[in-house]
């Protein structure tokens, strides 16, 4: 399918909450598409496939993700190794990192008319904080400076299936992604499944509030991709 090469229509920048006062009134021409989902959900693979397709259709694409800002991203990893950080501290650290990317990368790209494809956005950060006991309201307000994406997909995989995928890929489980810091179970498999269910519950709660679209990612890669691509194409056609 070939795309009409007309430019995407410009619109004013729209924030979730109080926003960034000094950016109010700016116009963005690009589109922000988010793919959320746990490790092992095929998220990165899908982001790569979508990027390739959009580029072949003639769109300029920029990829972003969590922990990727130039100077803060590395700091988080170093700090985590040195000393355990409190949950508010960690949440704010990630928010700072995210703000850096938002203002230095995402917003400039959107202003220039790029399609920004985000490998996770604030929703993973909010869910992680909530399952660790921080109030949802606080996280929501904290991320009030972020802009509303055009599309948010959530790759939904059964925790049991996810376990097998992660185990096969890394032949082990990540400490935090298994919720091992939460003391859910002595058994890492049980901890992983419990943790993932808690995360899924948070994503469900966010569906309506933030317009998250759950995508059944238990299916093979190609099927999931076709599903995602169809929705993205439809959106871009309508909004062109």
């Amino acid at each position: 399918m070939s795309h009409p090469k007309t430019a995407l229509a410009a619109r004013p920048i729209e924030f979730y909450g109080y926003g960034i006062s000094y950016l109010k009134g700016r116009e963005i021409k690009g589109r922000l598409i988010v793919v959320e989902g746990p490790d092992g959900s095929g998220r990165s693979t899908q982001v790569d496939l979508i990027t390739a397709k959009l580029e072949s259709d003639g769109h300029a694409v920029v990829n972003t993700g969590l922990k990727r800002s130039e100077f803060i991203g590395k700091g988080i990893l170093e700090a985590k190794q040195k000393l355990p950080l409190g949950k508010k501290t960690l949440a704010l650290f990630y928010a700072a990192d995210f703000a850096d990317q938002l203002e230095h990368k995402i917003i400039p790209a959107l202003e220039a008319g790029y399609i920004v494809l985000a490998d996770r956005y604030i929703f993973t950060l909010i869910a992680r904080s909530t399952v660790r006991g921080l109030p949802r309201k606080w996280s929501h307000d904290l991320f009030g400076f972020t802009i509303k994406p055009d599309l948010v997909f959530y790759l939904d995989v059964e925790p049991d299936e996810l376990f097998h995928r992660v185990f096969q890929k890394y032949s082990g489980l990540d400490y935090y992604e298994s919720g091992a810091d939460l003391g859910l179970s002595d058994d890492l498999y049980n901890s992983f499944v419990k943790y993932q269910r808690m995360m899924v519950k948070e994503f469900r709660l966010m569906e309506e509030k933030y317009g998250l679209m759950p995508i059944d990612a238990n299916r093979p890669i190609a099927q999931v991709n076709a599903d995602l691509q169809r929705r993205i194409d439809r959106y871009l056609h309508e909004k062109a």
Partner: peptide, 24 residues
């Protein structure tokens, strides 16, 4: 040092610092 911080990032980094001292 690199004069890269926007007001929002600057604010959040100070909040991080505050939270670390507060929680610890």
């Amino acid at each position: 040092r690199r004069a890269l911080l926007t007001p929002t990032t600057f604010s959040l980094l100070h909040a991080t610092d505050f939270a670390d001292r507060y929680e610890r």
